[in-house]
């Protein structure tokens, strides 16, 4: 198994930390992992992305041009990465702020309205965990137990009291994600 993922959105949406939690979850599941952030001028302009690879084998290139899965949190990232999903691959996006929706017919497209849901739950800070939950519902690359262990490893001790809320957010994401018809 090798899963090559791009997570992309605005800086501050928790893109990099979602990737980190996913990578830690992979470690808990005894997978090989890599996490490669954008750190260049694009990031300083407000967008952030991270490539996460989970694999049973030694990982070669941490930099890719096409992905099994794209997790997309804003319009710029959708415009940039929709075309980078491998045929048959998976695209998950949050509809918040999206005016041009994905159009490809040769990939599986799912929508998770995590920003709205986070607002309703009053859990804006863990919006990214709702997205992660949605992804894990569609593609359970790591088991939920290992995600919780990954959270414990990646969050500093002072945030450990927030783990139940994170777990709740993941569960909620699993419930609200839905396939976009016609994809």
């Amino acid at each position: 198994m090798t899963e090559e993922i791009i997570i992309a959105g605005f800086g501050g949406q928790g893109v990099l930390s979602m990737g980190k939690i996913l990578a830690y979850s992979g470690i808990m599941q005894e997978q090989e992992v890599s996490w490669m952030p954008s750190y260049g001028p694009e990031m300083r302009g407000g967008t952030a992305n991270v490539t996460v690879i989970l694999s049973d084998e030694r990982i070669s290139s941490p930099i890719l041009t096409e992905y099994d899965t794209a997790i997309i949190l804003n319009q710029q990232s959708l415009d940039k990465f929709e075309k980078a999903v491998k045929p048959g691959g998976l695209l998950i996006y949050d509809g918040n702020g999206i005016s041009h929706h994905p159009e490809r017919k040769d990939i599986r497209i799912y929508r998770v309205d995590a920003a709205d849901e986070a607002g309703k739950l009053g859990l804006a800070k863990i919006f990214n965990m709702i997205v992660l939950g949605g992804y894990l519902k569609v593609n359970p690359v790591v088991e939920l137990d290992n995600v919780i262990k990954g959270l414990k490893k990646s969050l500093p001790q002072r945030y450990h009291h927030m783990i139940p809320d994170n777990e709740k957010a993941i569960m909620r994401g699993m419930e609200i994600i839905y396939p976009v018809k016609g994809s």
Binding site: V33, S34, W35, M36, Y39, I59, P62, I63
Partner: peptide, 10 residues
């Protein structure tokens, strides 16, 4: 280089 410096691995 910046790639090996910035990436995270086990």
């Amino acid at each position: 280089d910046g790639l090996i410096g910035q990436m995270m691995e086990k």
